[in-house]
Amino acid sequence: MNTRSLFLGVTALSVLSITLSQACAQDAAYPSKSITVVVGYPPGGSTDLTGRAVADHLAKSLGVPVVVENASGAGGAIAALKVSKAQPDGYTLLLGANNEIAINKLITPATVKYTYKDFTPVGLVATTPMVLVASNATGVKDASQFLRAVSSKPGRFSYGSSGVGTALHLAGEMVKQQGGLFMTHIPYRGVAPLSIDLVGGGLEYGVFVLSSGLPHIRSGKVVALGVTEKQRSPVAPEIPALAEVPALKNMDIGVWFALMAPPKMPPHILSKLRTALSEVLQTAEFRKRLEESGSTIAPLDVDMDRFLADESSKYQKIVEFAKVKE
């Protein structure tokens, strides 16, 4: 090797060493500035409330400000796409739900330009069941009566949700699939008009997120037929699970919230975020805050890669059954 080649080799190694040292120093210093948690919906909804709770407690755990940015639109897809394209430096995160992370791509594959694989999962935060309800006008009091009534008159009855392709819609389609039912789906522009028609008797059945449905259920304005997850909810243990009825024994679908990061996150930063989230999930104040809103804190040992793959597969089957496309 001549002197010039040796010089160039030593120089390259020096530059590489400096670069690696700088990267390690940056990682070690993380976080050194405020972190943004992006939420794909306007303030006040369940995803936003969960995002703000996570942000408040992450700030305490990490020692830097954590702010929420509401980038609403396209069923959460605008926020999700933004985070999937962000720098993987740990300063831009997504607090998302199943709709924007896993479902939207199945419903609108031509326009949604990412999949759940375009994120680095930090961890599952919480889950909340949905609940199938009946209008008092139907006279139906439980899931068994519901199955008999709908089966006896195929196509006669309708159920409503907060929109096409939402988790609520897919939960209703899963009920149809499991029970062998023929019902018409009526999409509403949000929970408020859906509630009005159910309470007024203009719609026979509907699907709510449990937290949204509980005020109407406990006031007697609608009848709870069952929650959509496999087990009863600790928030409302008096409401049976639909899976308790033999014909619906495989019902298991809920709304979940997860903290996601851009792809290709440095392991050291990802580890810090996962440790911080684990601390948050074990904080009594955080647990109380989410449980009061109807959510159940996620276990700490969830394998997110397996979880997301299983959830996506579940939704794919329902979408294919219902032929849901926008």
Rank of each mutant, 00 (worst) to 15 (best):
T296G: 04
P31S: 03
A28N: 09
P237L: 09
R156K: 15
P88L: 00
S21Q: 09
M183K: 04
V199E: 09
K82T: 01
S233K: 11
V245G: 03
F321T: 06
F208H: 12
G73P: 10
S195G: 05
A309I: 08
V112Q: 04
G200P: 03
N99R: 09
V68H: 02
A12H: 02
R156I: 14
P88E: 01
K272G: 05
P234S: 06
G51Y: 08
I35E: 00
G76K: 00
L168I: 04
G90D: 07
A134K: 11
L13D: 02
K117Q: 10
P42M: 04
P262C: 07
D301T: 05
S212G: 04
G220Q: 01
P237F: 13
E100D: 03
P65N: 03
Q316L: 08
V131M: 08
L290C: 08
E204Q: 15
V37R: 02
M183P: 08
S271A: 14
P121K: 02
A25F: 07
I297A: 07
R189C: 05
D27Q: 15
G179S: 12
T128N: 03
N250E: 14
A309D: 12
P187M: 11
V255L: 15
T11K: 07
P234Y: 12
G190A: 05
S233M: 09
W256S: 05
D89F: 01
R52H: 01
S271N: 14
S46V: 04
G165P: 15
Q22G: 01
K82V: 01
Y30P: 06
R289E: 14
A309E: 15
L58H: 01
F307N: 10
G160C: 10
S295F: 15
E326I: 07
F307H: 14
R287D: 05
H169Y: 08
Q231G: 00
G155M: 13
A243G: 12
S17L: 09
M251Y: 08
V37E: 08
T3A: 14
T166Q: 06
D48S: 09
E326N: 13
A322R: 13
G160M: 10
